[in-house]
Amino acid sequence: MYELFKDLGAWLTSGDQWSGYDGIAHRLAEHLQYSLLATLIATAIGLPLGLLIGHTGRGAFIAINLASFGRALPTVGLVVLVFLASGLSMWPVYIALVALAVPSIVTNTYAGMTAVDPDVKDAARGQGMRWHQVLFQIELPLALPLIMTGLRLALIQVVATATIAAYVSFGGLGRYVFDGLAQRDLVQVMGGAVLVAVVAITLDLALSGVQRFLFRHRPA
C-alpha cells in the first residue's frame, strides 16, 4: 500500500509525465475543454427551459419527470449507443455529457423560480412591469443562488463523467484510467482518478467562491 502511494506520488510529480501529447497538461486541457463546452451547451438548453417553466408555471410536471429520467439514464449506455449510431466522432461524448447536465440545471432553475415570493412578483406587476421585466429584473436575480447551485452540480457531474471520452477513444484525463486498466497499470489508473477528483473539487470550490462573492450582501 505504501509502495503504491509512493509510485503514485512519483507519477503525479514527474516532469516527463506532465509534458507531451500524452502528458498530464495536455490531457487536463482536453478534459476541461470537453467539460466546459458540454456544460455551456447544457446551460444554453437548460436555463431558458427552467426559466420558462418557472415563469409560466406550466410544464412543471414534465420538468420533474425529466429530472428523474435523467438521473436514471445510464451515461455509459448512452455514450455507447450514440457511438454505435454515429461512428467515431465527438457526438457521443457531448450528447451524453449534455444529457447528464441538463436535468440538474432545469430542476434547480425551476426550484429557484418557484422559491421567489409571489408577493414580490405581484408588486412588480402592480407597478406596471412587463413580463420580461418581471422575469429579468425580479425573478432571475432572486433565483440566481439556486440557479448557480444547479450549474455547480452539473459541472461537477460533467467533469467526473468526461472520463468517458477516453472510453470511445478520445482524450482527457480518462485516458489514464482506461489505458491503465488495459495495461494493468494501477498507478496510472489511480493517477488519472486522483487528477479527475482534484479537478472536480477545485472547480466546485472555485464556483462556490464566486457564488459567495456575488451574493455577499444577501442574508443567507
Binding site: I156, A160, V189, G192, V194, V196, A197
Partner: peptide
C-alpha cells in the same frame, strides 16, 4: 459533499487496492 465530487469511476478505481 466532498465525497460526492469524487467521480464514480475514480471511487471504484481508488478502492481497487
Amino acid at each position: 459533499n466532498v465525497l460526492f465530487t469524487i467521480p464514480s469511476i475514480a471511487i471504484f478505481v481508488l478502492l481497487l487496492p
